[in-house]
Computed example of a mutant assay.
Amino acid sequence: MPLLPADTQFLGGLELGGIPIATMVSSLTGLPAVFVRRQAKTYGTLRLAEGADVTGKTITLIEDVITTGGAVRDAAIALRAQGARVAVVVCAIDRSGTGGGRLVEVDVDTRTVLTREQLAASM
């Protein structure tokens, strides 16, 4: 898959829209997926990312739609706090108009399948 960095060790499907996409990309590539919550659970596993220990791993985040980039930004910060390396998000649709919105604040590269402009032009 040309949008995925070669050093990706895990796909991080963001709750909720990114999870089915990450699951399918995992099936196609053989890369394991973890499912990333907006906030760590306060009961049970107490985990932010379910599926594997992310410490020291390079995670490419997967999101369905980016509008401001805030949710992906927060996930990248939280995963980094747990020792993961996060530098790229792949999204199906980037509606930010700025290439990922707030993600530039945390040095996360946005790779998109479609932009808002491309969608508008196809209608």
Score class of each variant (00 low, 15 high):
G99T: 07
T98Y: 12
L11V: 00
R95D: 01
L4D: 04
L4T: 02
A52L: 00
V108D: 06
E105D: 15
R95L: 03
Y43D: 00
E63T: 07
I21V: 13
G69M: 11
D53T: 06
G56M: 10
V86Y: 03
G44F: 02
E15H: 10
A121R: 13
T68P: 06
L114E: 02
C91E: 02
A87T: 15
T58S: 10
D74Y: 11
G97P: 05
L14E: 00
R85L: 12
R95Q: 08
S122G: 07
A40K: 11
V34K: 05
G97M: 05
G83Y: 13
V113D: 01
M1S: 00
D94T: 09
V54I: 08
A49V: 06
D94G: 00
A52H: 06
V25L: 09
Q118P: 02
G18N: 00
G18K: 09
A78M: 13
R85N: 11
T112S: 07
C91N: 03
V113Y: 10
F10N: 00
I62R: 04
R85P: 00
V36Q: 00
E117R: 13
F10V: 05
G56L: 08
G17Y: 08
A121L: 05
M24I: 15
V36K: 05
V88I: 11
I77K: 15
S96H: 06
D7F: 08
D64T: 08
V72T: 15
R95P: 02
R38W: 11
D94F: 09
A75F: 15
L79P: 04
G99R: 11
V90I: 14
G83W: 14
R37K: 06
Y43H: 09
T45N: 04
D74S: 15
R102C: 14
G101K: 14
T98F: 14
K41M: 00
T23R: 12
A33Q: 10
T55P: 02
G101D: 05
D64E: 12
G12D: 01
I62N: 01
L114G: 08
T67H: 08
G70M: 09
D107A: 15
A6F: 11
C91V: 14
P20G: 04
L46H: 14
T8V: 07
L48Y: 04
L14I: 15
R116Y: 12
G56T: 13
G99I: 09
G100W: 00
A76L: 07
E50C: 06
D109R: 15
I59T: 06
G99M: 10
K41I: 03
V88P: 02
R116N: 03
S122R: 15
G101I: 12
D94I: 13
G97K: 13
R95H: 04
A81N: 13
L14F: 13
M24T: 14
T60E: 01
S27G: 14
K57F: 02
L103V: 07
K57I: 05
D64W: 09
E105W: 14
M1K: 04
R95A: 02
S26L: 07
A33G: 01
Q39N: 10
V36W: 06
A92L: 15
P5T: 10
T45Y: 04
A52M: 01
S27H: 14
V86R: 01
G97N: 06
Y43R: 09
